[in-house]
Design a protein around this nucleic acid. Structure first.
Lengths: 223, 223, 223, 223
DNA sequence: AATGAATGAGCCTTCATTCAT
DNA sequence: GATGAATGAAGGCTCATTCAT
């Protein structure tokens, strides 16, 4: 993945019915195989076998191994985009407290990760995807940051000058904590308790903003 | 890495001067090569070449490729342990506000990651290390959580019943944010400003604790 | 061969026509290459080259180098079994003198060795085959000893108490002499003359039995 | 061994005391290592280690790995020559029956093999030695055949025209049977009983000669 | 002379990719 | 379009041999 940077787009647009089924089964098989063996050791032969097709057929739809990962990435990113859009739409439709809104957002993040933990892990950790995919990932992240920023604005929770930075940090924290949660769920903690905890982190951070900008000074006063 | 789990210890103990030099150059080269190509594509030939030795020499000191990573891991973990111990020792020696203590802790985390960002990334993301190494990693994390817990206790900042959980979350957040900071330093933000931001997140979370346990209720009341 | 004792079964069952041809050409090439270079220096690359295929094809049908030898062994042992069965069946169908029967048996042994002298040499001398193959070899030998024993019984040539031992010795002698004959045919001696000689050794040994059990005493009396 | 046919003589004649000790320890170690790992897998490093010297020292006395085997061979062949000469000298000094003489000869053969079974196996089976060594081996064998021929002559046991052939066969049989005996001693048979058996084979064969030259005719007459 | 670290050709094996059927 | 046998470059690793110390 890192070595060969030849990322091409799928060879053909599978319009026909059977083609689509084949492509889907290959992608599904790829997820399982990459999860079980990792990307490097997840051979095309194994993917084809699990998909129930011949290697040759695999190469009929994907010009090379990397293209499978790209397809997976694009699919995953699109899914994320949809999920995020829906979640934020909800927060706008309903009239909620900041905490409840945050809970909804965090819930959305968890859904994002739960959708395909393996693919997400693959893309965010094991592999360095092609620029094209990286940009798509960053676009989604930018969108998340912007949405959070709007939420902050709508609640007048944070000074405008810091809103962008705070939103970025919130996305980072939410991203990592939910990621961790989905991949390594801590026993002795119900999913709801987990969400509560993440919300507390974010809420605490936001409330901190209205107290003062300089952490040291702020806390000094507290003591 | 995932497939073959044969992790052995180094072949010979490099006592002699020349040996140590060779081993060091191999480890240094390995870091660079793994960083540039990833673990799977980071071939032993490339490592040897960059180290300026023959492959044979590499295998004189490491029984196989995985052993190089283990050596790297052990070296890195030891370094982390030392760094963490020192940082926490400082917080105890000096009389500081909670915020200042947190800043010291965050500074320690950043040093931890800055020491060998690539190796850290390799171990925490790309690769599934042998149990032995995993346990060492977990031991360090447990130690971090415990130290943070003691800090919380010394400041009576968090209810005893939640202290352990809060400490765990703090370590997670600090861990990820500093990791992100070191690997992808956001331009338009000085390092100090970064530290401030992380401290605010943690501080906000901690102060949240003294207000109420249930985030929703707590915030509802606030509004 | 001695070091790594990982013997697996062939990777896939060659059902298709082309596959079988490839497998056969590989086995044939292996015989030649092992004969010319010995097992250790008979590299898979050389075998593939002589077989006119790529190394990859070799590994499509054999999981590793040892598996080739195992296949060779099994093939050879099966051939031996068939040959031996046929030879002994002949001796039963026809009414022959002991000498003529022995000649038939010796002829069978020679055919056994002539079938694949190189493979036989490989298995019996150069290499330590896996237990599985060893047992098959021993099974064939046991069968030979038993058949010879029955012949001895049918001719009442040897006292029952010594029949088993004598049969064992006969097989040993026949085995080695014919082996030697096929591999290093002595010039100045026609094949028939060779057979005659072996038969004389065996016949002499058998006739010795009816004279007396103690060689020394027996011969002393003769002088 | 088969691949590289570069057999040179030892680099230097170890006259000095310490040198001889080193050479001897290397040869002794080589025997053990070749026995345990086989020739191909018996590395020079292991030999040196077991001999308690550095690899470099090994190469001070032997130009390459094969040279060690040659030295072993020459040593072994010389030993065989000595042993054989002594054994046959005995048969001449004493006045013995043919059977007793044969027993002495067989005893000699066993001593030959018992001296260094491993080296003998190595040379006669696993490895194709250089022409030089092969010739030395053949010279010893020729000597054995000649001695046996003289014994046959002295006992007027075999017609002069067949004496050479019979002697050759006797050596072959004795050679193989004793070889087998030493390497795979059959349980349920005392060493003495083994010797008896071999003597019987040989004696039977010899006595056969005085009956008739053509096995078929001879046996036909018997019927 | 002795040492043992260094060397690198060469071995076994894998796997992405192609192409005849 | 589908198949899967064939391909061969490339990777991990070994070990006979050399040479600076």
């Amino acid at each position: 993945m890192r070595k060969t940077n030849i990322w091409k787009s799928p060879r053909k647009n599978p319009i026909q019915e059977r083609s689509r089924l084949t492509v889907d089964s290959i992608l599904e098989a790829a997820i399982q195989v990459f999860e079980q063996y990792g990307y490097a050791a997840g051979t095309t032969a194994r993917i084809a076998e699990r998909a129930g097709v011949a290697v040759g057929s695999l190469y009929q739809y994907f010009p090379n191994k990397d293209a499978i990962l790209v397809a997976l990435a694009e699919q995953h990113i699109a899914e994320c985009h949809t999920l995020a859009t829906q979640a934020f739409a909800q927060t706008r439709e309903m009239t909620l407290s900041l905490a409840e809104t945050l809970r909804l957002v965090v819930k959305g993040f968890i859904d994002l990760h739960a959708a395909n933990p393996q693919v997400h892990r693959l893309l965010s950790e094991e592999v360095v995807p092609p620029l094209e995919v990286q940009q798509a990932q960053m676009a989604v992240e930018r969108m998340l940051v912007e949405e959070v920023q709007q939420i902050l604005a709508s609640y007048s929770a944070v000074d405008a000058s810091r809103r962008s930075l705070v939103a970025y940090v919130i996305v980072q924290v939410a991203e990592h904590l939910t990621h961790q949660l989905v991949l390594h769920p801590p026993h002795k903690l119900t999913p709801e308790a987990c969400v509560d905890e993440v919300v507390q982190v974010l809420l605490g951070y936001i409330q901190q903003q209205s107290i003062g900008c300089d952490a040291t000074r702020m806390v000094s006063g507290t003591q």
